[in-house]
């Protein structure tokens, strides 16, 4: 089977019916997307599927056929960070940063469908992403910054 990840077509093996997360990490070596809970409750595995942030840990790889998948690795273009990545870096948001990929992907998906979300809208969109180090205020600040820089 073929899937389209970060603008490239890849042939993958789905004989064991793996999740999209397993395929990305084990077969395509795109390890930026993380395992956190296996039940779509933490957001660490979020990738964009046709522009929407989805949990790769409960998404069967076969269901990704014909969709455009973007992972954290696909956000940087020609060595230039995505504005959301730039904002997270400038704000020096993270501690252990294990949640970083999922946070950034969720934030990118949010700002792509709503360029100027309110605080409440940010919380609603991001609430499925857990930062166990609890850097939530810094993440909010980075999203506010990305919002402003995009505008």
């Amino acid at each position: 089977m073929k899937i389209n990840v970060n603008g490239k077509s890849h042939t993958i093996n789905v004989s064991a019916n793996p999740t999209l997360l397993e395929v990305l990490r084990e077969q395509l070596e795109l390890t930026g997307t993380k395992y956190g809970c296996g039940e779509a409750a933490c957001g660490a595995c979020r990738v964009m599927m046709d522009g929407t942030a989805v949990p790769a840990c409960i998404t069967p790889a076969v269901s990704a056929q014909g969709k455009d998948i973007t992972t954290i690795e696909g956000l940087e273009k020609n060595g230039k960070l995505h504005p959301v990545q730039e904002a997270f870096l400038e704000e020096d948001v993270f501690q252990c940063a294990y949640c970083a990929s999922g946070m950034i992907v969720s934030a990118v998906a949010l700002l792509e469908r709503n360029a100027s979300p309110s605080r409440e809208e940010i919380i609603e969109a991001m609430n499925g992403n857990i930062c166990r180090c609890c850097t939530y205020p810094q993440i909010m600040a980075a999203i506010e910054k990305a919002k402003t820089s995009k505008a």
Partner: peptide
């Protein structure tokens, strides 16, 4: 820091 925001 950059390695964390790029998933590297």
């Amino acid at each position: 820091g950059r390695d964390y925001v790029t998933g590297k």
